[in-house]
């Protein structure tokens, strides 16, 4: 990381689909600055905009009012090249519905991302598969994996890049307690190595990731 930690700043943001429904939120219509290294959990019931918030920060949605800045620049001004750079080097995302390629194997899904970034060695990848108990699923097409296994493959894929923030959308929802712990440990360790922050969206305040600040949407 550079001298100044990478920051995300939300300024009076309100997604259009939630217009008029965001009273008492600690995020919407507020000024929030999140620095790399910080861990925030955005807690809300279904339909309150958890995924929307992460999608706005990741540049997938533009239907919001207010201003979001990343590295002190309004993300609305980012072009395709800038988003490509940011998504390869600054923001990693574990999508709620994983967004894996079902026709590829677990290994191919992960190496595809790694081809773009060139960040991990084959050894790194194998040890991550091992750490999450997926070493036997490496050659398995993703379509044949369980939701929990897919979730872990999505986490490994997200870790195949340098990042200042890791965006996690319900990353433990399909995991048992043991794999949840393994996954949280891997995430925490990688974030610490990179000095990265975590933006976690969850229905519950209860999370295996220790030391997170909770913000109610």
């Amino acid at each position: 990381m550079g001298k100044n930690p990478v920051r995300i700043h939300l300024e009076n943001v309100e997604p259009q689909p939630l217009r008029g429904e965001v009273a008492n939120s600690e995020v919407w219509h507020r000024d929030i600055t999140i620095s790399a290294g910080q861990c925030l959990l955005f807690k809300a019931a279904s339909g309150k905009g958890k995924t929307t918030l992460l999608s706005i920060i990741f540049g997938l949605r533009r239907d919001y009012q207010g201003k979001v800045t990343f590295e002190d620049a309004d993300i609305r001004s980012f072009g395709r090249a800038e988003w490509s750079r940011v998504r390869q080097t600054q923001l990693a995302y574990v999508f709620q519905d994983f967004q894996l390629f079902d026709e590829l194997t677990a290994w191919e899904n992960v190496t595809l991302k790694n081809q773009l970034t060139g960040y991990r060695t084959v050894g790194d990848l194998k040890s991550m598969f091992q750490a999450l108990g997926l070493e036997n699923k490496i050659g398995e097409p993703v379509a044949r994996l369980s939701r929990g296994q897919k979730q872990r493959v999505a986490v490994i894929r997200a870790l195949c890049q340098p990042f200042a923030f890791l965006l996690l959308d319900e990353p433990f929802s399909h995991l048992d307690r043991e794999t949840m712990g393994q996954t949280a440990a891997l995430i925490r360790s990688e974030c610490q190595k990179q000095g990265a922050g975590i933006l976690l969206a969850s229905l519950e305040a209860d999370t295996p990731l220790a030391g997170v600040d909770i913000k109610k949407l």
Binding site: F58, R80, S84, L116, T117, R157
Partner: peptide, 14 residues
């Protein structure tokens, strides 16, 4: 669908 996912992974559309 695949193209969109690739862009989300950081692949430049160009």
């Amino acid at each position: 669908d695949s193209l969109r996912k690739l862009v989300w992974l950081g692949c430049h559309p160009a």
